[in-house]
């Protein structure tokens, strides 16, 4: 009953506050986990935009960040490992009025689910994809991930006792190459910038991708190596220049934060489907009868 009463308050209370978007479930994340920052930023942006939680669906993968939907008071779908993007695409196609957000980490989205990322990006599905990137598998207790850059930071790396010889992938570089219409990077320790980037991603119509550098204090504490490399993208960068964005993405000396690329004019997948829909005026029966006639 307490749950129901709280939910009603959320509908009636205007304006909504950030904590109104948080559910009664407490995160199980370790102290200092970057994901706390991501969760706070999302609920703050929701409150600032006074977003109706009835119209929000958060779809997540499996991993520490995959637990996201449980901690927010809105619709949530915690699916299977690596498949959050196609599941979210289905949600978006079924009801284009919904605001769809996908949250899944580096293992979920760039390893097991890597095959879905390019397609969601090139289709320009109208959704926001937050990828909290801790460069490690945390939930399974410390194996290397496709974004692990510095094995010396990995506390256990039980699956790589003799080292790792695999090049890490660059999430922002991938998103740009895949044709995402909005590409950004944020850092859980830079809360103001994080909220600003998430806000811009939500405002974008089309596929908006945000890599959130979100260190794992237990298995891969990268705060000390990342923080000194942080630079903020300023007005000198042309936000419509994909090649310039790629140069920033592959800058080895710095971790650039902010919006790398944006194409606000590309039609979304939902727009395209709406465009070809010509619902038969005579209803289902007439449409079917017209089709049946072609078989006689």
């Amino acid at each position: 009953m307490a749950e129901v009463a709280q939910a009603q308050t959320l509908h009636e209370a205007e304006p909504r506050r950030a904590k109104d978007y948080r559910s009664a479930v407490d995160p199980i994340w370790c102290p200092g986990c970057g994901d706390f920052g991501v969760l706070s930023a999302v609920s703050e942006v929701f409150a600032e935009r006074n977003i109706d939680p009835d119209n929000v669906v958060i779809v997540s993968g499996i991993g520490c960040s995959g637990r996201f939907p449980a901690f927010l008071r809105c619709y949530g779908f915690h699916g299977v490992h690596g498949r959050a993007l196609p599941t979210a695409t289905g949600v978006a196609l079924a009801n284009p009025k919904l605001r769809v957000m996908v949250v899944g980490g580096d293992g979920d989205g760039l390893s097991i689910g890597a095959g879905h990322f390019p397609h969601a990006a090139r289709r320009n599905v109208d959704l926001t994809y937050l990828l909290p990137d801790n460069e490690i598998y945390g939930l399974t207790k410390g194996q290397i991930s496709p974004t692990t850059t510095d094995l010396s930071l990995a506390k256990k790396a039980l699956s790589s006792p003799h080292g790792s010889w695999e090049q890490p992938v660059n999430p922002v570089g991938l998103a740009l190459s895949y044709g995402a219409s909005f590409v950004a990077r944020a850092y859980s320790a830079q809360r103001k910038e994080l909220s600003k980037v998430i806000d811009e991603a939500l405002a974008h119509r089309g596929f908006s991708f945000v890599q959130v550098v979100s260190p794992c204090t237990t298995f891969y504490n990268s705060y000390k190596t990342i923080t000194p490399k942080v630079r903020f993208i300023d007005d000198e960068h042309n936000i419509h220049d994909r090649n310039g964005a790629l140069q920033l993405a592959y800058d080895r000396r710095h971790v650039w934060l902010g919006v790398f690329y944006r194409d606000p004019d590309r039609p979304t997948l939902q727009d395209q489907f709406q465009h070809i829909r010509e619902v038969s005026a005579g209803g289902r029966q007439r449409a079917l009868n017209d089709i049946f006639r072609q078989y006689t």
């Binding site: 695409t89 289905g90 949600v91 196609l93 095959g115």
Partner: peptide
């Protein structure tokens, strides 16, 4: 892109 995505998409749409 594959059948995993196909059924994933269906489940998402069904959820909605």
């Amino acid at each position: 892109e594959d059948e995993i995505a196909a059924l994933g998409c269906c489940l998402g749409a069904s959820f909605a």
